[in-house]
C-alpha cells in the first residue's frame, strides 16, 4: 500500500512538473551549450570572445544596464584589464562643488555605458523599434542562447508572397519574421585577438554564450557550492537513516 501511495505522489509530481514546463514549440535548432547542462560550465574563451563581439557590435544599440565593469573579473580579466575597459567610456558625474555636472572616464564600479540616453532616444535612432536591454536576454527568451544564435544567423530574403514592411528585415527565428534590427553580424566583421576573422556563426555562438553568462554571472559559483552542499546532505541523510534504524530497531 505504502509503495502504491508513493507511486501516486511521484506520478502527481511528474504530472505537475511536466505541465509547468510546457511551452509553445519554437522552430529553434538546438545546439550544445556547455553551460546549460546540470553540471555545465562556461567555455570562458568563448565568453570572452563574445564580450568582444558585444563591445564592438551590439553595444552600439543594446544596453547591458545591470552589469558593472568589475563584473568582467568573472570572465577572468585582471583588475588592470577591467580598468582599461572601463576607462574607454565616459560617464557623467556630479554635481561637483560648483554645482556642475562633469564627464569623467568610467570606473570599474560603474554600470556598463548605455548607448542611448533613454528609450525614446533608442527608438528614434532605430526606426521606432527598441533594442532590448541585454542583461537578462538569455533568460528572458524561450530557448535562450539558441534563440539569440537563431536571430543572428536567421537573416535571409523574404518568401515572394510575403509583403515586407519598409524598414524591417526578414528573419527566420524572430516571432512574426519581420525584425527592425538590421543584420548585425557578417563574416569577418570582428577580428579576434589571435588574428582570426570570425565567421557570422562563430561570432553569433560566442556572443550568445557571453549573453548567457551576463544573465547568470554566478552560475559557476552556484554549481561549485551546490556540489559541496549536496555531498554534505547525502552524508547527513545517511547518518539520519542509520540513526532512525537504530532507534526503531526494537519496535514491534
Amino acid at each position: 500500500m505504502k509503495k502504491k501511495l508513493i507511486g501516486f505522489m511521484v506520478a502527481a509530481a511528474l504530472c505537475l512538473g511536466g505541465a509547468a514546463h510546457a511551452e509553445e514549440g519554437g522552430k529553434l535548432a538546438h545546439q550544445y551549450w556547455p553551460e546549460r547542462g546540470v553540471f555545465g560550465k562556461y567555455d570562458m574563451a568563448s565568453v570572452q570572445r563574445g564580450f568582444q563581439v558585444y563591445r564592438e557590435v551590439c553595444s552600439n544599440c543594446h544596453s547591458l544596464k545591470l552589469m558593472s565593469y568589475r563584473d568582467l573579473k568573472g570572465l577572468g580579466y585582471t583588475d588592470a584589464q577591467v580598468k582599461a575597459v572601463a576607462s574607454a567610456y565616459t560617464v557623467q558625474d556630479g554635481p561637483n562643488d560648483e554645482g556642475e555636472m562633469f564627464d569623467r572616464p568610467a570606473r570599474p564600479s560603474d554600470r556598463f555605458h548605455s548607448p542611448f540616453a533613454n528609450d525614446k532616444a533608442a527608438r528614434a535612432a532605430n526606426g521606432g523599434a527598441l533594442p532590448p536591454d541585454m542583461s537578462l536576454l538569455a533568460n528572458a527568451r524561450p530557448g535562450g542562447p539558441d534563440y539569440i544564435y537563431g536571430i543572428l544567423t536567421g537573416y535571409g530574403t523574404a518568401p515572394a508572397d510575403v509583403k515586407m514592411t519598409p524598414g524591417l528585415y526578414w528573419n527566420d527565428t524572430f516571432p512574426g519574421h519581420q525584425i527592425a534590427m538590421p543584420q548585425p553580424l557578417s563574416d569577418g566583421q570582428v577580428t579576434y585577438s589571435n588574428g582570426d576573422a570570425a565567421s557570422t556563426q562563430q561570432a553569433a555562438r560566442d556572443v550568445a554564450q557571453f549573453l548567457d553568462w551576463a544573465s547568470n554571472p554566478h552560475m559557476e559559483a552556484r554549481k561549485a557550492m551546490g556540489i559541496k552542499v549536496i555531498l554534505f546532505m547525502l552524508f547527513f541523510v545517511g547518518i539520519m537513516r542509520a540513526a532512525k534504524r537504530k532507534v526503531w530497531a526494537d519496535v514491534h
Binding site: H21, N139, I230, M233, A243
Partner: peptide, 25 residues
C-alpha cells in the same frame, strides 16, 4: 528521528533544485 530523516531527505531534493536547476519552473 524519523521526521528528521524525512526532512533531511526532502531538503536534499530541494537543495538540488536550488543549486542545479533553480530556474526550471
Amino acid at each position: 528521528v524519523k521526521d528528521s530523516y524525512a526532512l533531511v531527505t526532502f531538503m536534499t531534493i530541494f537543495l538540488s533544485v536550488v543549486f542545479f536547476a533553480p530556474l526550471a519552473l
